[in-house]
Design a protein around this nucleic acid. Structure first.
Lengths: 151, 151
DNA sequence: TATTGTTATACTCTATAACTATA
DNA sequence: TATAGTTATAGAGTATAACAATA
């Protein structure tokens, strides 16, 4: 071991493997009929559940989307009664987003199911491998998360 | 260190971080005007470039998509002159997919640009971290890749 | 009959451009 | 004038259902 590792080789591996894992997550999120959420819907719902009264801009920023795209995404969630949109009390340009009780139920169900699914897959790994994974996820987050403030 | 690491905690970290990295990859793939490829287009093109005369089913299988979705995806690539679709010589139900020379150019340009982008971001890491990342990517691949045969 | 693929239809993701309303 | 957000429009991803052609 201890041969040097280029950023290029590391990038190659990431570019091959990350979309693979993502595909699996996406499939799983979509598979339960009672809680059909796309990945963007899941992420938006999750963000707002952790950031009560978030504005549209904040969600867009977190998701890396434009405002129109985010507005549409929120439209969908509201149509499905998973989120609400209210006027901001002091700045009438802004909106206050919140997750409905039904949204919370769906969100947690989706999240728990997906986590369970992933955890089951990870049974094939050993403790050392999982520790390495968690360490790597932390490192990747510090590299890729612009906002980098969410715990 | 050497505390045990649960599959659950590991799953949580993966579910938070992988979509983050994926978003970045997607943005970068889309950002160059001359070589606009979506992630699915990139993956399909890449697969066919490495598996000459692949059938539609093989691509669908690799991508984890249904046949109709894959057919549409290939339609797009053909419309943009990046791929060709021919009849299989001995089994006329099947198609033979191939990447055009222009497709290869676009593919390699996109791939190199994205790799370079990722590699630059990874400059912030050190050699040990990158070795850990590569090891983890290998482990994730063995967990998440159904086909698990591609090198 | 089983396999390979396409077409029809519908919904979502996402962007840019143009717009409205408020600060 | 700058900021927050929506609407209009368009192209792509993706699924299910129904279908055609070949083995």
């Amino acid at each position: 071991m201890a041969t040097s590792m280029s950023t290029e080789e590391c990038a190659r591996q990431i570019l091959e493997v990350v979309p693979l894992v993502m595909r699996d997550i996406r499939c799983e999120l979509r598979s339960l009929r009672t809680a059909e959420l796309t990945v963007p819907q899941f992420r938006a719902l999750f963000f707002v559940s952790r950031n009560i009264d978030a504005s549209l801009s904040q969600v867009a920023d977190h998701m890396g989307l434009t405002l129109p795209s985010t507005s549409r995404l929120v439209d969908e969630l509201i149509k499905h009664h998973l989120m609400t949109r209210q006027e901001h009390p002091t700045d009438r340009r802004r909106v206050k987003l919140a997750v409905t009780s039904q949204g919370l139920i769906i969100l947690e169900a989706s999240r728990n199911r997906t986590l369970k699914y992933l955890a089951e897959k990870l049974e094939r790994t050993n403790c050392d491998e999982r520790r390495a994974m968690v360490a790597v996820m932390r490192a990747l987050r510090s590299v890729f998360d612009k906002t980098a403030k969410q715990v």
